[in-house]
Computed example of a mutant assay.
Amino acid sequence: MHNEPNPTPTDAPRPMFAAGTGPAADPAGDRHERRIRSFQPRRSRVTTAQREALLRLWPQWGLEVDGESVLDLPALFAGRPVVLEIGFGMGEATAAMAAADPDTGILAVDVHTPGQGNLLRLAEERDLTNVRVANGDAIILLREMLPPASLAGLRVYFPDPWPKKRHHKRRIIQRDFIDLAVTRLAPGALLHCATDWEPYADAMLETLTASPTLTNLSPTQTFTPRPESRPLTRFESQGLSKGHAVKDLLFRHEP
């Protein structure tokens, strides 16, 4: 998860794919409303396998976060309950969770084109029909494209901590975001966050605890051990090897 104001016409990202053949460079256009975003598009190199997966599978399993229509989640996921995952990196953990729980749909949103291609490739290789990949701004997805009380869960794993104090306003887990997110959670839905940046973990805990409809599932009302349902990611392993303390936060929506 990442941010910056809208690019100007002179520095707007160039399309990587022809229209209709892959994820758009800026699907929502001016719907970004000049607000500070919690993400920065990353334009690292797309491998041949990732590009081929995007070209082949995007029309079937990909969707653009353009803010123009409300998604029909039961149709997209064949009636499965749906969990939204915001920021999935290269998609390995997402694919593992989808394989372990085929009766739950995962709507995975990110702006990282190589990761989108890699997750689609993994989904095809493992026959994961319960995964859909969304391209764009998660705020627009939540606010304009998801019906109220439509999600069985929300996952935000290792969002950008924006460690410098002057950048804290860019963090995704803030009160305004949570106030929006809980309106899209069904009663009993689980909100699961994880971070290896302790100051951000403390800020997350404070923000989530302040929400009147979220109940902390930790017996100590603080952090929880990593649930078995959340795979150990490559990024997380790197953090642990550096001595970082990973914190999980698990809350239930109880309106």
Rank of each mutant, 00 (worst) to 15 (best):
P9L: 06
V109H: 04
G67D: 10
L128D: 12
R143N: 10
V46C: 08
R252W: 01
H192Y: 02
H192E: 09
L54Y: 04
D176G: 03
R34C: 14
H32I: 03
A53Y: 05
L119T: 01
N130A: 07
A93I: 02
K164F: 01
K164W: 03
R132M: 03
E92F: 12
L57G: 07
A189N: 02
T220C: 10
R155V: 07
P187M: 01
Q221I: 06
N130Y: 05
P81H: 04
T113L: 13
P227L: 00
R31I: 07
R143A: 14
D202W: 10
A25D: 10
P231F: 09
E206G: 00
I178G: 00
R34A: 15
F39S: 06
P5L: 15
A186M: 05
R155E: 08
A149Q: 15
R45V: 01
Q238D: 15
D202R: 15
R31D: 15
L191H: 09
Q50S: 06
Q50G: 08
I173L: 07
A12I: 08
G91F: 00
R37D: 00
A194Q: 02
R226S: 02
P59N: 11
T104C: 12
P227N: 01
A75R: 15
A19E: 15
K164Q: 09
L84C: 08
E254W: 13
D103R: 11
S38Y: 06
K242N: 13
P199T: 12
I106G: 10
P163E: 02
D127N: 15
D72R: 13
A210L: 09
I140W: 04
F251P: 03
V246R: 00
D72I: 12
L250H: 04
V133I: 11
P114Y: 06
T195N: 03
R51P: 02
I86N: 03
A96V: 04
L107I: 08
P225K: 09
P163W: 01
I139T: 15
R170V: 03
V109M: 02
Q50Y: 05
A95W: 07
R51T: 01
S44K: 11
D127Y: 11
A245Y: 14
T209R: 12
L119A: 02
V46L: 10
N135E: 04
K165C: 06
P5A: 12
R42E: 07
A28F: 12
R230Y: 02
E125T: 14
D66Q: 10
T94L: 09
L250K: 00
V182Q: 04
L240R: 14
